[in-house]
């Protein structure tokens, strides 16, 4: 589907203070009005942009819906039959929840790294080559596998045992293998759902450094429960909170801003209280 943009209309939009789609710097724009699991309202009113070439961090207390929002950005939530989203998620100008969009295609372009390392029960090489074979990669698979493992900072540790099962690696290595697997296909955006929560502090630091390097080539959105981690890696931070006023537990976006600003000078009372609670 192509969209021709009338230059005159663009001019009018600019004058009216609206940024035209073609000039947006966001890779993903999520306008989540409501997310339901069955009758349960899990998330409301969360409008957030994932900017190109930057790391966007999602923080907030448990149950605030940060993971749910992240997972709705590449339609992973569709695996849950009772999931329902009201609103839209726009990826490169296209609503990924439009009826003519196949979630499989969305997930091929928006990669994901999960909370628990989850390599496949196959060789290290085949783990990384998985997405390449899936997309019928025309180039040299071995080169691409090596390149991805190097970027994930794992190559030196595994280059002599590429035929070993990926599950034989340590937890931290497994997570870097999963990152290598996710970036091998050059996804436009990489989503990371608490990628360090199952790792020890040393492995965490390695993965964090890796994220900063990945920023050069990828757009990254990361959910973390670790404030320090968000400050270390995220350019932009989105703070979510949970509303228990109506008897349920509904998450919502409180505010978004450049990380430094959000942490040093939060605009919202809720954010200020949360950050104070975290640090005092």
């Amino acid at each position: 589907m192509t969209m021709t943009i009338d230059p005159q209309a663009t001019e009018l939009m600019k004058n009216a203070g609206i940024t035209p789609r073609s000039e947006l710097v966001a890779a993903i724009e999520a306008d989540v009005n409501k997310i339901y699991y069955g009758d349960f309202l899990a998330v409301r009113d969360s409008h957030i942009a994932i900017e190109k070439g930057k790391i966007t961090g999602f923080i907030g207390p448990s149950g605030c819906g940060k993971s749910t929002v992240l997972r709705s950005l590449n339609r992973m939530n569709d695996l849950i039959p009772i999931f329902r989203l009201e609103g839209s998620v726009t990826f490169l100008g296209q609503d990924i929840y439009a009826p003519n969009i196949d979630p499989v295609l969305v997930r091929r372009n928006i990669g994901m790294v999960f909370q628990q390392p989850n390599p496949f029960s196959m060789s290290i090489f085949e783990n990384v080559a998985f997405g390449l074979r899936l997309n019928r990669y025309k180039g040299n698979v071995a080169d691409k596998v090596e390149q991805s493992l190097r970027r994930a900072g794992l190559w030196e540790e595994v280059k002599d045992k590429l035929k070993q099962n990926g599950l034989s690696l340590s937890g931290g290595q497994q997570q870097r293998l999963c990152i290598a697997r996710a970036i091998a296909t050059d996804p436009t955006v990489l989503l990371m759902d608490e990628p360090c929560s199952a790792l020890d502090p040393i492995a965490t630091r390695v993965v964090e450094e890796l994220m900063l390097e990945l920023k050069e080539d990828y757009t990254v959105a990361i959910v973390t429960h670790n404030m320090q981690q968000a400050q270390r890696v995220a350019d932009t931070t989105a703070f979510f909170s949970v509303d228990i006023s109506k008897g349920g537990r509904t998450g919502f976006l409180v505010e978004t801003g450049p990380t430094k600003e959000l942490f040093s000078n939060p605009k919202q009372e809720l954010t200020r209280n949360y950050l104070a609670g975290e640090f005092s």
Binding site: N74, M76, L79, V104, L105, V106, R107, R108, N109, G111, M112, F114, Q116, N118, P119, F120, S121, F130, G131, L134, N135, C178, R181, A182, T185
Partner: peptide
């Protein structure tokens, strides 16, 4: 988590 990994890679 293995299912998530597979579908997350964009498998049918």
């Amino acid at each position: 988590k293995v299912k998530e990994a597979a579908y997350g890679m964009g498998t049918t």
